[in-house]
Design a protein around this nucleic acid. Sequence first.
DNA 1: CGACCATTTGATATGGATCAAGCGATGTGG
DNA 2: CCACATCGCTTGATCCATATCAAATGGTCG
Lengths: 222, 222
Amino acid sequence: MLQQARTIPTRQVPPTAVARQAFDSPLDMMGTQMRFGRNAEVYGEDEPAEYLYKVISGAVRTYKVLADGRRQIGAFYLPGDIFGLEAGDDHAFSAEAVSDSQVLVIKRSAAMDMAARDSTVARQLRTVTGRELQRAQEHVLLLIKSAQERVAGFLVEMARRAPGASTIQLAMSRQDIADYLGLTIETISRTLTQFEKSAAIALPSARQIEIRNRAALTRLNS
Amino acid sequence: MLQQARTIPTRQVPPTAVARQAFDSPLDMMGTQMRFGRNAEVYGEDEPAEYLYKVISGAVRTYKVLADGRRQIGAFYLPGDIFGLEAGDDHAFSAEAVSDSQVLVIKRSAAMDMAARDSTVARQLRTVTGRELQRAQEHVLLLIKSAQERVAGFLVEMARRAPGASTIQLAMSRQDIADYLGLTIETISRTLTQFEKSAAIALPSARQIEIRNRAALTRLNS
DNA sequence: CGACCATTTGATATGGATCAAGCGATGTGG
DNA sequence: CCACATCGCTTGATCCATATCAAATGGTCG
């Protein structure tokens, strides 16, 4: 499952129509918008964490590849999410665009400077790290569960994070989901068809999932 | 009485000095020392996170119990470790003493106030949260691996965190380890005997594990 | 239309769970 | 000081959920 050759990210001067709703913090004013093609690398593991990133459109995954080639996805970031803020000086994971994405790139040092002066920004950065921690802890809880529970949990999480619509638009492949949940694509696929047969979801197409019985999914997600 | 078994005269220090070495931060001056008996609750999930805690002696586990009774241990905290610092206002996990433990209890609001005035303390608190995040991320990576790899990873982690000695003194039971690694006690036990047979470790007693071939364990921990 | 890739579906294998029993250390009451 | 209960751990036999191997199907783009 080799990644396709990395495309060179094209730096763009802030274009005309920017997703205005994404600019909701003083931090955002310091960012430069960049475009990353599908599977393009945003940063690599062990690179110095010089920037933070905010997804404007598209989706980004962070991941690690273990010695034997297994890939573990740490998280998916959707529009509005901030990522790349690390505990140490270097990135612990690599980051790639799941699909074509617009990303706001903010210099870390500048963000830190601003945080030192503006306690609102400082609080925001703490909140981001805190959410990241919560996310990782919930991920741990997911990974000890059965395949059904993991997939149900994933769907519920995606439904919660996606804009209101009852049909989830998945940016990521079955392989991405499998690598996030510690399962195989076959198990993901089988579990989804099973949910479909039990009428908990509908699958108009592979990347569209309609939640028909959220209670059933939440119950599974014990 | 646990530690009484092994006596290394040159390394022995009076109890007062042992306690003192844990007081290495301005934060510690604000703490009150408390004793928790084996299995005593330090705090419960969903309680307001009014305090932070620092282990002086003994060991503490944080955990969640899922709806169906499964217990997931989030982390073990050993002497010197700080825990109970949460992202939100409430504790996400419960905390219990694994064995009789001395714990320094520090008022959260006081710690925050001090952080606002002393940037060293602020940095220290950020570092603690950051380490917590790293730990959770590593925990995720552990949970997708095979039983052998998880157990090996656990042993290597414990060896790293424990004071120099080549023999690890485990404060926790097989059930604790199982609930940390998402395995059963039987699998923990079988895997340890397997490691013993392959001469990677020695098991003088159930709670003492001597690492005989760290390279072999690290290799497993791919 | 044809090639390619992602996804689904089917058949079989296997690692770890479960069920069950034995064992050794520790503590307790007689 | 011994007999016995208890508890944590180990070991054995069997089962089952998910992985693995394999092939068919479907969707997308030249």
